[in-house]
Design a protein around this nucleic acid. Structure first.
Length: 111
DNA sequence: GCGTTGACTATTG
DNA sequence: TCAATAGCCAACG
């Protein structure tokens, strides 16, 4: 492997990797993913930004819909269409939403 | 090197 | 519960 740098994937790759480790029926928050990637929950914004750059081609590899906000509400607040898709995918995995449209991350959250 | 941007989080009122 | 504010980190121009 001549590409020694590939041993240390960039922030993007690490985020995709961490998100892809989330099993079906479970959800995680940006802060949690940030902690997996950087060891800190402070980089949550960067995680969201990294997923925002997630090309559609990687959608099948990275279950971005399993990443929610810390309070269990869906992200993509500025993208209603994508949020609806996220909700559909989560419902398809058996996750329940409350009246406020939020998931009980304490119950479905992936530690 | 600096300022801006962003799918965030925690705190305060 | 909702709204607004401050703090943090990484990439881009």
């Amino acid at each position: 492997v001549s590409e020694a740098a590939s041993l240390e994937p960039g922030f993007f790759e690490r985020v995709y990797r961490a998100v892809s480790r989330i099993p079906p029926g479970r959800v995680s928050s940006y802060g949690e993913v940030s902690r997996m990637v950087n060891g800190r929950a402070s980089g949550a914004r960067t995680v969201g930004w990294a997923l925002g750059a997630l090309p559609e081609l990687r959608v099948d590899e990275v279950p971005w819909w399993r990443v929610l906000r810390a309070d269990g509400s869906l992200g993509l607040g500025r993208d209603p269409e994508a949020a609806a898709e996220q909700r559909s995918r989560l419902e398809a995995e058996g996750l329940g939403f409350d009246a406020a449209g939020r998931i009980d991350i304490e119950r479905f959250g992936w530690p």
